[in-house]
């Protein structure tokens, strides 16, 4: 039963691998914790090995237990258990000369995560009425992004704010402790009050760049992308929503509007009215 101080919260996630690549090979991971209202995407680097495994460990860690302290020492203490887990999962004795050397250089992933504050369980699976006085804690490292759509426009974005920033290799979180000396500098956080009508998008780089480009360049095409995102949230059938998502992404790849890269995206809407 809702009262006037509640908003209807909905969340949906989508993930697709590069063209002609099975989803098992997708190196973008999603962390999804509906009991606590925590969400994350992590983009594992193509240029490192065992990066899908690292991205997945990182996304899961974030939604189970976000870092309580983002100082250099705090972040290292937070990452330490999954760094060990990552190294232990590699079949070192089965690796040849090159694979062993490559794995020794570590795996890397960027991250964008969001936590509802206070931690909020979704009452009906991926949706439900929750307190209106909800805040969101944003965390981002480089080009995995979070956008806040308000009144039809991108009102805020973290950490990249322009499509031109998606150029060159980003800084990423490493599976080796000694590679994360600068992580605290790149870890950006902010607390944001959610409002009725807000839509948060948590996205890895390819789709994030596509959305920012459309917003910057063309009102009509931005409108089309926004309607697509809205549809994805409100299609009741999960499978149909996934198919719609895959079709749209593949069409944009064919027209070269969207780079052929792995994609992970989470949509989180705060509405007055539910389904």
């Amino acid at each position: 039963m809702k009262d006037n101080n509640e908003v209807y919260l909905q969340a949906r996630k989508f993930r697709i691998a590069k063209c002609n690549t099975p989803i098992q090979a997708c190196e973008d991971a999603i962390g999804w914790n509906l009991k606590q209202g925590r969400f994350a995407v992590c983009d594992g680097a193509t240029t490192s090995s065992y990066s899908a495994e690292w991205a997945s460990l990182l996304a899961d860690l974030f939604v189970e237990c976000p870092p309580p302290d983002i100082s250099p020492a705090g972040l290292q203490a937070w990452l330490d258990p999954i760094q060990k887990k990552w190294a232990q999962a590699i079949p070192w004795d089965k690796l040849d000369y090159f694979s062993k050397r490559k794995a020794r250089t570590g795996a890397y992933a960027t991250l964008a995560g969001m936590c509802l504050d206070p931690p909020t369980e979704f009452p009906n699976g991926r949706s439900g009425w929750v307190s209106e006085k909800i805040k969101t804690q944003i965390s981002v490292v480089e080009d995995s992004c979070i956008f806040l759509l308000r009144n039809g426009a991108i009102a805020r974005s973290w950490a990249y704010t322009q499509s031109s920033q998606f150029q060159g290799p980003p800084y990423a979180i490493g599976s080796l402790a000694e590679k994360n000396c600068q992580l605290a500098t790149y870890w950006k956080t902010e607390q944001v009050h959610a409002q009725h009508g807000d839509l948060f998008i948590i996205a890895t780089d390819a789709i994030a760049k596509f959305l920012l480009s459309r917003f910057e360049q063309d009102a009509q095409r931005w409108q089309q992308a926004r309607e697509w995102l809205n549809d994805l949230l409100f299609i009741p059938d999960e499978k149909e929503a996934e198919n719609r998502f895959d079709d749209f992404v593949n069409q944009r790849r064919s027209s070269q509007e969207l780079r052929d890269d792995d994609v992970a995206i989470i949509l989180l809407s705060f509405e007055k009215q539910g389904l």
Partner: peptide, 10 residues
């Protein structure tokens, strides 16, 4: 460019 890369870590 061969996909998602990361900065050279110093």
């Amino acid at each position: 460019d061969i996909g998602t890369r990361v900065q050279e870590i110093r």
